[in-house]
């Protein structure tokens, strides 16, 4: 075992992961069949000259990773002058290319939309954590009763439901009561006003609830099983012997210890939550990154897909790093181990 500290190890892992994702993203969209210039610009009227200019601008005249000939000649500067380094340079400058569909800068397109997805995922996740922990704790405490059975059956049902289908069902059920899609009622209020944000909140209810129900099922089942195990520990018996009330035991002894597996699980399922967000945004036309991905798939808008995937992957990697840091703060044992 290496004796590196816990956090440096996690940081290194995150960095390596980032590196692999960036490289993968580069390679994946370069193995597209056909000429990249024609694929990237999809303009049949492009002159030979213009094509050549684009080729130079994007470094497509250069080798993909490494100029081995230059490397053997000892010319290091030329050896690393490749498509990959050009891609990295562009990435560092926030240049993610241009959308096929509307010629918009991909970075700008993503920036404009990212907070909407953050808003959706954040509120859905918060609701899911609260719901999952509360119901899971209750089910574990009342284990074997009707409450437990009901919670279990609902949990399994939500687990088995495809996210997008739950969205469609809620959409049909709430028809006429809540807005069916979008983020705002067009022309209803000026952005930034209170009325505007209330309108956004009204549009957020259905998508956030959909995301919450699907995620809560997993949290509930894990919360229930870890609480059941904790409640069988001797220190719970000791607490009961001391005469503490059940509620107090649950709050001070069970909940605290059940928090640790929850933090791990939330971090671990974040990647799935992002996948859920794509489906939910698609169903409810929520104009975030997920809906953008859906529209770009239909239009085969590769630069946008590439940028969106990179953004999603990087966010999840960073969120996981954050969870690791949080975990070491919650549980002093991992810092030593």
């Amino acid at each position: 075992m290496t004796r590196t500290g816990y956090l440096p190890r996690k940081l290194l892992f995150a960095l390596v992961t980032l590196g692999i994702v960036i490289t993968f993203n580069f390679v994946l969209f370069r193995v597209l069949p056909g000429d990249p210039v024609k694929m990237l610009f999809r303009n049949p009227r492009l002159t030979q000259e213009a094509q050549e200019r684009i080729r130079v601008q994007f470094g497509l005249d250069k080798p993909m990773f490494l100029d081995t000939e230059a490397l053997l000649n000892g010319d290091l500067g030329a050896a690393f002058d490749s498509q990959f380094t050009a891609y990295l340079r562009n990435l560092a400058q926030g240049n993610l290319g241009v959308s096929f569909a509307n010629r918009q800068d991909v970075g700008e397109l993503l920036r404009e939309r990212v907070w909407r997805t953050v808003l959706l995922v954040f509120s859905g996740e918060l609701l899911a954590i609260f719901l999952g922990m509360a119901v899971g704790l209750l089910a574990a405490w009342k284990r074997g009763t009707r409450i437990d059975a009901a919670a279990l059956i609902l949990g399994l049902l939500a687990w088995a439901l495809p996210t997008f289908f739950l969205g469609i069902i809620l959409l049909l059920l709430a028809r006429g009561v809540l807005p069916a899609g979008g983020m705002v009622t067009p022309g209803y209020a000026q952005p930034g006003t209170l009325a505007y944000w209330l309108d956004v909140a009204k549009h957020l209810i259905l998508p956030a609830t959909t995301l919450a129900i699907v995620n809560a099922s997993g949290y509930m089942l894990i919360m229930r099983s870890s609480t059941v195990e904790i409640l069988a520990e001797d220190y719970i018996l000791t607490a009961k012997a001391k005469g503490l009330s059940n509620l107090r035991i649950l709050r001070d002894h069970a909940l605290k210890n059940a928090m640790l597996p929850m933090v791990t699980l939330i971090a671990l399922t974040l990647g799935y939550t992002v996948g859920g967000a794509i489906q939910v945004e698609t169903v409810f036309s929520w104009p975030g990154i997920g809906r953008l991905v859906y529209d770009s798939v239909a239009k085969q808008d590769y630069p946008v897909l590439q940028g969106a995937f990179l953004l999603l992957a990087v966010s999840v990697i960073l969120a996981n790093l954050l969870a690791d840091i949080l975990y070491s703060a919650l549980d002093p044992r991992v810092r030593l181990g």
Binding site: A308, F309, I317
Partner: peptide, 10 residues
């Protein structure tokens, strides 16, 4: 840590 559905999707 790689988001599963987006990865399969791209």
């Amino acid at each position: 840590v790689i988001p599963y559905l987006p990865l399969v999707l791209v």
